[in-house]
Design a binder for these strands. Structure first.
Length: 426
DNA sequence: AATTAGATCAACCGCAAAATT
DNA sequence: GAATTTTGCGGTTGATCTAAT
């Protein structure tokens, strides 16, 4: 046992990720899957340890992240789950599609805890504070053992952290059990381990064309912890990238991810895109699809940039000033081949504002990014913007100004049908 | 306008389990 | 079965943002 060997090596970068690093990592994983995380840095040339790459992928680059403010329902669900599961953030996150354990942990520590206390509820035990104060605070029944061992606080030192068995959580809340919480806000829980679940239209729409509402929130509620609708990506000290959460996404149909390793044909989908693949039957993903998002020409001040986008394709937001007048389009294609399962994700453009300071070599010149073809899916790298755009227009057409013209329902139906057809569900 | 305090969040750390050799 | 490597988890930290003074 011990620390990751690469952590001992020097010259490894730490701190915030630059767009260039993100791009490298994303390109690599979309193309090959991550396989062994420890080998990712070598394969990508990143000066990061595998652990850091994994974390960046899971918490940030993964295409199925929901982003946006936590809804009240989500908060309630977190509280419910925490009551049962304790600080097992990963298990809690498993019940909240598109949310990461880190996100939830942050939300809990920064906001929910406080709220509960304000309501007179002890966040550790979920019991009234008065009850705790009345002397039974010693070992609350509901506190898991590790918390008991440490008095229910986080005031323990890292080096003395014990691994103590916690009480068995209610079975229906475990990730492996797809049963929803009866009569609770968690009725929509989708088991991430249940490979027999049949995806429904609602599932796809909810999962992949998700949370229009949350992404269009126009301000950060002062009483809620969550993301600013104008997500800000910190790229080192030299650049701050303000990213409009306007969702955009494409699937790259031409590249053949996972071919480095044959096992990737189906399994790597699971590893690279856990929440998605874990919720669908492990059939080969034989359809080709792509969602291409052309952008306006970059302009000064506010310009568009290729970057990671998430599976909120087709939703839009008018919360940012940097996306006005831009169009996003989606193209989906399908074929009937179930060979050569290909399924990759890529970058799409979106509105960005970057305030960069000059200086360090790692600084990214975003104007260069905009002209750099590697950020584009292989399918469109060799096309002119015009041809891409016209291709896309013929399919579906979304705008980012808050409206979804062009027969949205037809578009979403088509989207679902093609997606589901690809999974062999229709 | 400047300062300060609190809030937020990305990323690091160390540990332990799981997997591999 | 032991040693080593890799992965995953939860706790914590520090940079940055925002609101209040």
């Amino acid at each position: 046992m011990g620390r990751h060997s690469c952590c001992y090596k020097q010259k490894l970068r730490k701190g915030l990720w630059s767009p260039e690093e993100d791009e490298k990592l994303l390109r690599h994983i979309t193309k090959y899957g991550h396989g062994c995380w420890s080998s990712v840095p070598k394969q990508t040339g990143l000066q990061r340890c595998g652990k850091s790459c994994r974390l960046r992928w899971i918490n940030y680059l993964r295409p199925d992240l929901k982003r946006g403010t936590f809804s009240q329902q989500e908060e309630n669900l977190i509280i419910e789950l925490h009551e049962v599961l304790g600080n097992r953030w990963s298990q809690i996150a498993a019940q909240l599609p598109g949310r990461t354990d880190n996100e939830i942990k942050n939300l809990w520590n920064s906001c929910i805890k406080k709220k509960l206390r304000q309501r007179g509820i002890d966040p550790n035990t979920h019991k009234p504070l008065s009850e705790i104060e009345n002397g039974e605070e010693k070992v609350p029944t509901n506190m898991n053992n590790s918390e008991k061992a440490w008095g229910g606080s986080n005031e323990r030192t890292e080096n003395s952290k014990p691994r103590v068995e916690v009480p068995e959580p209610k079975p229906h809340l475990l990730a492996a059990d797809p049963r929803p919480l009866e009569g609770s806000s968690s009725s929509k829980i989708i088991s991430t381990n249940d490979s027999t679940i049949t995806p429904t239209k609602e599932f796809f729409l909810d999962r992949f064309v998700t949370s229009h509402e949350s992404s269009t929130t126009t301000c950060r509620p002062s009483n809620l912890v969550g993301y600013s609708p104008l997500q800000q990506l910190n790229y080192g000290t030299n650049a701050r990238l303000s990213v409009n959460p306007t969702p955009a996404l494409w699937f790259n149909q031409n590249c053949r991810p996972f071919e480095m390793n044959s096992e990737y044909h189906t399994n790597s989908i699971s590893t690279a895109h856990p929440s998605m693949s874990s919720s669908i039957p492990p059939v080969p993903v034989g359809f080709k699809c792509s969602l291409n998002l052309p952008s306006d020409s970059p302009s000064t001040g506010s310009f568009r940039n290729n970057r990671v986008q998430y599976l909120e394709a087709g939703t839009s937001s008018n919360s940012s000033s940097c996306n006005s007048g831009s169009n996003s389009s989606i193209e989906l294609q399908s074929n009937n081949s179930f060979e050569n399962s290909v399924f990759s994700w890529g970058l799409a453009d979106c509105s960005t504002q970057i305030h960069s300071q000059e200086g360090e070599p790692e600084d990214i010149k975003w104007s260069e990014y905009l002209q750099t073809p590697f950020l584009l899916p292989a399918t469109i790298q060799n096309q002119t913007p015009q041809s891409i755009y016209s291709d896309i227009k013929s399919e579906t057409h979304f705008t980012t100004d808050g409206s979804i013209p062009w027969h949205q329902s037809q578009a979403s139906d088509m989207y679902f049908q093609r997606l589901a057809a690809g999974f062999g569900q229709i």
